[in-house]
Amino acid sequence: MPESPVHQDATPALRIADLRFRYPGARPTDPWIIDIAALELAPAEQMLLTGGSGRGKSTLLHLIAGVVDLEAPNAGRIEVAGRNVHALRGPARDAFRARHIGMVFQTFNLLHGFSALENVMAALMFSDIPPREHRALAAALLESLGIERTDAAPDRLSVGQQQRVAVARALACSPELVLADEPTASLDPENADIAMDLIQNACRTRGTALLCVSHDPAMAERFPRRARLDDLHTAHLHAAAPGLAAGREGGEAWR
């Protein structure tokens, strides 16, 4: 597997600084679910985050995507393609997400009642890409990912093909960052392999950074850069505890 290209001078696809998060309703004495001093992903870089379930992997992805709010006492800064995601509010953040962040899920989360093509077009309809280009763009993308029956409903496609549609949807707007949440958890090992090849190659071809969370040990060898979420936390605590305002370069150790 070739080393991901890292351009130091380019705007990072993802930059997290001093991120601390607890679920709403948690007591002030509860530990932070997410506590990351610093994490950076260069353009087109691919990284694997591992950790047991319930350790906040998905929550981290939702925070990055901006579908979970970062409100006091939670704090921190999450930049995607140079933009502070949580500085954007409401529809502006949604529009930003549409254009710059793609998501792939364990259960694909394809829209029922919509064809494969329409699922990809659904991702385009919330972006600023001119509507007349949507159909051609989606068709070309699906074709490049090997889906021929673009008019088929997702539930008529094989599991592997469904995953391709989901990947195509995540990449439709040529985002800077793709977030993959356990993308292989519902696949058998053979299909998992194919799916990961697909996701990684597609991202690489388009210069899209990929942050993948998984607890599948087989994934490790696919990612030159990987970290355990718990270790990110621990490292942070070691580097910065008890004062939290100090500089946090510790996370970078996990590059």
């Binding site: 949604d94 930003f96 989360n109």
Partner: peptide, 13 residues
């Protein structure tokens, strides 16, 4: 609704 939101559909929409 959640999927549409992830794809960038705003709450008002």
């Amino acid at each position: 609704v959640a999927v549409l939101r992830v794809l960038g559909c705003s709450r008002p929409r």
